[in-house]
Simulated assay, not measured.
Amino acid sequence: MTLLFSVSGGMGGLSAFSTCSLPSISTTVTHFHNNKLRLQRRFNSVPIVSMTGWVKEEQEQILPPSLTSTSPPPSSLFDGTTRLYISYKCPYAQRVWITRNTKGLQEKIELVPIDLKDRPSWYKDKVYPPNKVPSLEHNNEVRGESLDLIKYIDTHFEGPSLFPTGPDKEFAEELLSYTNTFYKTVVSSFKGDVTEAGTAFDYLETVLSKYDHGPFFLGQFSLVDIAYAPFIERFQPFLIDVKNYDITMGRPKLAAWIEGMNNIEGYKITRSDPKELVESYKKRFLANP
C-alpha cells in the first residue's frame, strides 16, 4: 500500500523493501526529453556493460547538491511545487528518479536529494515523518514507497505510458512483486554460495525469453525494467569483484537487457560509479559485526 501523508500528517500503510534509510508498457518509448537539471556539477564514472566486460566513460552530470542538516528546506514547502525527495545512493529512490526522467518530467517534478548520513531535521518534522526516501510531494500530500511512486507518476503525469493495461498487466504485476524475493535471494548469497543467486538470475533469463520484440521484460521498456535496474546495477559489479561471478555468463537475454538499459537516457544520468557501489556493498554486507 502507498504510504501517504497529508499536510496534517495522515498516515497510510507501509510495505517493505521500498525505501532507503539509515538507523537513528504498453507503449514503446521512442524518445526522451533531455531537459537539463540545474545547480552543481557532478562527475561520475558511468559503466557501460557489454558481453566482454566493463567499459567506463566519464559523463558530466548537472545535479542538485544533497541537502544536509545545515540546509534549509527548498523554498516554501507545500506551495504547489511537486518535489521528489531522493538519495543519490538509494536504489529505491533511483527507481522513481528514472521514472521521472523517462517521462520527461524534469521541469514538472523538482529533484530534492537528501544526505541520508546527515539528513535535515525539517525533512522528518515537516515533510515525511518516516524520514526515508523516496517520497513525493504532490498536491499538498506526501507519498512514499518506491513501487507505489513509480506507478503514481506514470498514471498522474504526462509522458509515455510505462505500464501495460492489457493482457500483460497481470504478468507485469507478478514481476514487480518478485523484486523483493530477487533482492533477498541475491543478497543472501553474498557471504555464502553464489549458486543461490544464480537461481534468481536464471529466473530473470527465463522471463526475458518470453517476449521476442525487444530486450526488456515485457519486450518494450516499462516500469518493470525500472524496478530491477538499480539492483542489477549494484549486483553485477559486486558479484564480479567479490565472487568472480559474471551474472551475464550463459544468460544472453540478461546481457541484452543490460545493454538495452544502458541506452535508456532517463536511466543513464542516475547511474553511479561501479567502484563506489562495490565499496558501499562491501561495507554494508561483508563488514564484520
Score class of each variant (00 low, 15 high):
residue 136 L to W: 05
residue 148 D to K: 07
residue 81 T to M: 06
residue 68 T to V: 06
residue 142 V to C: 07
residue 146 S to T: 00
residue 131 N to L: 08
residue 161 S to T: 07
residue 125 D to S: 15
residue 146 S to F: 01
residue 116 L to W: 00
residue 97 W to R: 12
residue 121 S to W: 03
residue 76 S to T: 05
residue 130 P to R: 11
residue 97 W to V: 15
residue 132 K to C: 07
residue 63 L to F: 14
residue 121 S to I: 14
residue 73 P to A: 14
residue 120 P to M: 03
residue 100 R to G: 04
residue 62 I to R: 06
residue 154 D to P: 02
residue 86 I to H: 01
residue 163 F to L: 15
residue 75 S to E: 15
residue 173 E to C: 14
residue 144 G to M: 03
residue 151 K to H: 09
residue 53 G to R: 01
residue 43 F to L: 12
residue 155 T to H: 03
residue 173 E to M: 13
residue 140 N to E: 09
residue 55 V to E: 11
residue 52 T to C: 03
residue 75 S to T: 15
residue 142 V to P: 11
residue 106 Q to K: 09
residue 147 L to N: 07
residue 124 K to A: 15
residue 107 E to Y: 06
residue 56 K to Y: 02
residue 40 Q to M: 05
residue 77 L to M: 13
residue 99 T to Y: 02
residue 84 L to S: 10
residue 61 Q to V: 15
residue 170 E to F: 13
residue 99 T to A: 06
residue 48 I to S: 11
residue 169 K to Q: 12
residue 65 P to G: 10
residue 175 L to I: 08
residue 104 G to S: 07
residue 138 H to R: 06
residue 156 H to L: 08
residue 44 N to V: 10
residue 140 N to W: 04
residue 71 S to D: 11
residue 105 L to N: 05
residue 86 I to F: 08
residue 67 L to C: 06
residue 175 L to P: 11
residue 101 N to K: 05
residue 40 Q to K: 08
residue 93 A to T: 13
residue 100 R to L: 10
residue 80 G to N: 02
residue 143 R to D: 02
residue 125 D to F: 04
residue 66 S to F: 00
residue 165 T to Y: 04
residue 118 D to E: 04
residue 71 S to M: 09
residue 64 P to Y: 12
residue 175 L to C: 14
residue 81 T to E: 11
